[in-house]
Design a protein around this nucleic acid. Structure first.
Length: 203
DNA sequence: CGGAAGATCCACT
DNA sequence: GTGGATCTTCCGA
């Protein structure tokens, strides 16, 4: 079934837009209280750091909240937003740049029953479990205690998969960043074309 | 020190 | 389509 070989740190230490594209089709493997939860990544967004108005690292902003965003590629940046949701990012490139990829949606591969329970649902249509960054974190039991962990080992890994071909990946503007001036329209959102687990608005 | 806004989600009309 | 939930963070005064 799903492969178990974690991506090496060097995978992440490349241009952010490329990493965002190439994370599509990989698997997030989460060990949570004895359960193995697996999601296939179907949607990502690239955040480029200081030059990117939509990035938490815009203009070099650096605070206690986003400190882990400045770790070297391959670490997690988990932040709390809107008073109730967590979002999961994969730090990219080298240390101190503040570039990262937001994991926006995943397709359940294993442990779906447990993920449903974590989401507080009894049944779900495609996309309900992990279609959206807040839902995805809730389905995997991710919170601030996962901030700064490595993705190549431990209880929150990203492993190899079967990345779709380039023509199966759609690109478009990122979600929820209307304030981001010139960066509003940058096509840094990536998703598997036609996949039902992609968040709204669908690409 | 106060206010505003946020890389969201859900329920309701 | 609209607004409310809920709270941390940030910036301006």
């Amino acid at each position: 079934m799903s492969p178990s070989k974690a991506l090496p740190l060097r995978f992440y230490r490349r241009p952010t837009e490329l990493v965002a594209r190439e994370l599509i089709g990989r698997y997030i493997v989460r060990e949570f209280e004895g359960d193995r939860l697996v999601l296939r990544i179907v949607e990502t967004e690239a955040y480029l750091g200081a030059p990117d108005r939509a990035s938490h690292a815009w203009g070099g902003r650096r605070t206690a909240r986003n400190e882990s965003l400045y770790l070297p590629g391959g670490h997690a940046y988990v932040y709390f937003i809107y008073g109730m949701h967590f979002c999961l990012n994969v730090v990219t490139e080298g240390a101190d740049l503040g570039s990262a990829v937001l994991i926006r949606a995943g397709e359940p591969v294993a442990g779906e029953e447990r993920m449903l329970a974590l989401r507080g649902l009894s049944r779900a249509r495609p996309g309900d479990v992990a279609g959206g960054p807040g839902r995805l974190c809730k389905a995997l039991g991710i919170n601030r205690s996962d901030d700064g962990v490595r993705f190549d080992r431990g209880a929150l890994k990203i492993v190899e998969g079967e990345p779709p071909s380039a023509d199966e990946i759609a690109a478009g503007p990122r979600v929820g960043i209307d304030y981001a001036a010139d960066a509003v329209a940058w096509p840094l959102r990536f998703a598997i074309r036609g996949n039902l687990h992609v968040s709204r608005p669908r690409l």
